[in-house]
Design a protein around this nucleic acid. Structure first.
Length: 306
DNA sequence: GGCCCAATAGCGGCTAGGAC
DNA sequence: GTCCTAGCCGCTATTGGGCC
């Protein structure tokens, strides 16, 4: 606790230029005597804090002393502030967040007026819901509370899930909740856009699982229900393929068509995803997926026959 | 592992003094 | 009068070592 206070004192003095011991004592809810001792320790650590006595006096950091190099360079601060502000839009501010932002703001006052990087982590279809959901999930993770919600499955049915939340992830343009599903009795990722009617449940005893183990279990689960899909694309769309697939998955055949090999979870959404490429894409393997795609297209065709 | 004890850290209160 | 400086004292919580 004391180390935190010492660091905060340095940053407050640096930000406000001149601050009295009384103000610091009130801010940290300690005695004036404690603040004087803290200032002493800070000076011992090599940070030159000086003081003016009398009315209008207070503590200040001596001129020509920069704190910047103790922490991050300008580019690092700029990038972190951009991320922090993006997170702020979704999660809202609290005291902890304000303290972090204050520290960053001090480190790079001028450059922060001109963002070189802009990140929008919201989702167009659920701007307001996303804020509400993320805030609730964040609270559940902090307080070790269960989350109860309806989750849509591949058959487009909503089933109630009770989940011990672990973390929130933004990956490949989507937000996910990772948690231990009490229905499936295993770790699961839940796509936020598929969650409805979320609410906080009772408290639970948090399982001690590190991030590496979580990632391994989730990856194994993903691979177990994945199939290898080979797709052929006309060269009309070829140059855009790198927007959708890793470059190492893309090759060219003798007729200048592009061939993509990828692993995908076998579910309803896969057919829709493939069809989003229109007539420029043809599934080569597996055969049963070709058959399912054909039947799906015939069903659509029936709707448009007079 | 649990208990005891001494050392240490951190803190608040008080006081006297100096600078402005 | 306001604010910083610094020594002293006592209290409490934490830490580390020794012992059973």
């Amino acid at each position: 606790m004391r180390v935190d206070r010492l660091l905060s004192i340095i940053l407050i003095i640096a930000k406000k230029r001149l601050v009295t011991g009384k103000d610091l004592a009130e801010h940290f809810e300690v005695s004036l005597r404690t603040i004087y001792r803290d200032i002493d320790k800070i000076c011992e650590a090599g940070i030159p804090i000086a003081s003016y006595g009398g009315k209008g006096g207070g503590y200040y950091i001596m001129e020509n002393y920069s704190l910047d190099n103790l922490f991050f360079d300008k580019e690092e601060v700029q990038a972190l502030m951009t991320v922090m502000n993006s997170i702020n839009i979704l999660f809202g501010r609290n005291q902890q967040f304000n303290d972090i932002v204050m520290k960053f703001e001090h480190l790079n006052k001028e450059d922060l007026k001109h963002d070189k990087l802009s990140i929008n982590l919201s989702h167009f279809s659920m701007e307001e819901e996303l804020k509400e959901y993320l805030s609730l999930m964040n609270k559940a993770i902090e307080k070790n509370r269960l989350l109860i919600f309806d989750y849509v499955n591949r058959k487009m049915e909503y089933l109630e899930r009770t989940v011990e939340p672990i973390r929130i992830t933004y990956s490949h343009g989507e937000w996910y909740l990772t948690g231990f599903c009490r229905i499936r009795n295993n770790l699961r990722n839940f796509k936020l856009v598929r969650i409805r009617n979320i609410k906080l449940g009772e408290g639970f005893n948090k399982k001690e699982i590190d991030n590496e183990t979580i990632d391994r279990i989730l990856t194994e689960g993903y691979e177990n229900r994945s199939i290898k899909v080979v797709m052929k694309f006309t060269n009309k769309i070829g140059l855009q393929l790198s927007e959708y697939f890793p470059k190492k998955s893309i090759t060219q055949d003798e007729e200048n068509n592009y061939v993509v090999e990828e692993l995908y979870p076998y579910e309803e959404g896969l057919l829709k995803y493939i069809l989003s490429f229109g007539k420029e894409c043809e599934v080569i393997e597996p055969d049963y997926l070709r058959g399912e795609l054909k039947n799906y297209l015939l069903d659509i065709l029936k709707k448009y026959q007079d």
